[in-house]
């Protein structure tokens, strides 16, 4: 009788293992898709912000004639963003553009007429909103990557991950030291 009980127990365990493998595999696919989706969601916002910049520059350049350096840095940062290929380059260009925009909005405080311009106020609010959303989505992306990287390095999921060739950790949305040097800006 004990052999039968062991047999039933082993069948349940085998079914459990099969379901577990299927579930881990589906979970890893889902985590991968989450990362790709989160990355696309950042890129949509980066594009939207880049599209707003020519309007911003044409609005402010009439008022800020003596601040060409600041405007040049914004343009340069935008170009870096457009040319960025890797995730690290995009993160570095994003940092550079955020810094340049922060300086531009700080300098704009010295121009009361500009601050009273409706289209400038609208653009500033829109771009600041996009900046905040980009920061949130960067954090969300990095959380998604972190979830995936932890899962593929944890036991027992790492066995399935290795078997399915999912064992390569994903890259965070973070500028590498090299890319940071490439886009360094001085005011």
């Amino acid at each position: 009788m004990i052999e039968w009980l062991i047999g039933i127990f082993l069948i349940i365990v085998a079914v459990g293992i099969i379901f577990y493998i299927i579930s881990v595999y589906n979970g890893l696919i889902q985590l991968k898709n989450n990362i790709h989706k989160a990355r696309s969601n950042i890129e949509v916002l980066l594009k939207q912000r880049s599209d707003e910049l020519p309007k911003l520059i044409s609005t402010v350049k009439g008022y800020m004639k003596y601040e060409k350096g600041v405007l040049t840095e914004v343009t340069k940062a935008r170009t870096s963003m457009m040319n960025a290929k890797t995730l690290s380059q995009k993160a570095a260009a994003d940092n550079m553009l955020s810094g340049a925009l922060k300086t531009l909005f700080a300098v704009a405080e010295n121009y009361p007429k500009l601050r009273a311009d409706k289209s400038f106020v609208q653009l500033q609010s829109r771009i600041s909103g996009l900046e905040n959303e980009i920061a949130d989505r960067r954090e969300f992306y990095n959380d998604s990557v972190n979830n995936f990287n932890i899962r593929i390095q944890s036991f027992p999921d790492m066995i399935v991950a290795k078997w399915m060739k999912f064992n390569k950790p994903e890259e965070m949305f973070k500028a590498s030291a090299q890319d940071m040097r490439d886009v360094e800006i001085k005011f």
Partner: peptide, 14 residues
């Protein structure tokens, strides 16, 4: 599913 999806901030919800 709950473990896999990070918490979104409402202003940047996708």
């Amino acid at each position: 599913l709950i473990e896999n999806i990070p918490t979104s901030k409402i202003r940047s919800i996708a």
